[in-house]
C-alpha cells in the first residue's frame, strides 16, 4: 500500500497511527545522560505499556 523498492516510502497518518500502541519500550541500546532522561522521558520509561496504564 505504502511502499515499493522503486518509489519513495510514503506512509499516511492513519497508517502510522495503527502502530502507536504496539511499540511502547525504548529501542534497544537507547542511552542518554541521566540529567537529560529526567526531563525528557516518562519516569516509567522501560517498564512497558501495562505499567504506564496502572496509574
Amino acid at each position: 500500500q505504502h511502499e515499493s523498492e522503486n518509489f519513495t516510502k510514503k506512509y499516511s497518518k492513519d497508517f502510522l497511527l495503527k502502530f502507536q500502541a504496539q511499540y511502547c519500550d525504548l529501542p534497544e541500546g537507547f542511552s542518554i545522560a541521566p540529567n537529560v532522561a529526567n526531563v525528557l522521558l516518562f519516569l516509567n520509561a522501560n517498564k512497558g505499556h501495562n505499567d504506564r496504564d496502572s496509574y
Binding site: Y11, L16, F19, Y23, C24, D25, L26, P27, F42, A45
Partner: peptide, 18 residues
C-alpha cells in the same frame, strides 16, 4: 538523542518521550 529509521523505532521513542 537518537536516530531512527523505521516506523517501529519512531513509536518506541515517541511513546516514551514527553
Amino acid at each position: 538523542i537518537y536516530t531512527f529509521s523505521t516506523v517501529e523505532e519512531f513509536w518506541s521513542l515517541y511513546n516514551n518521550i514527553h
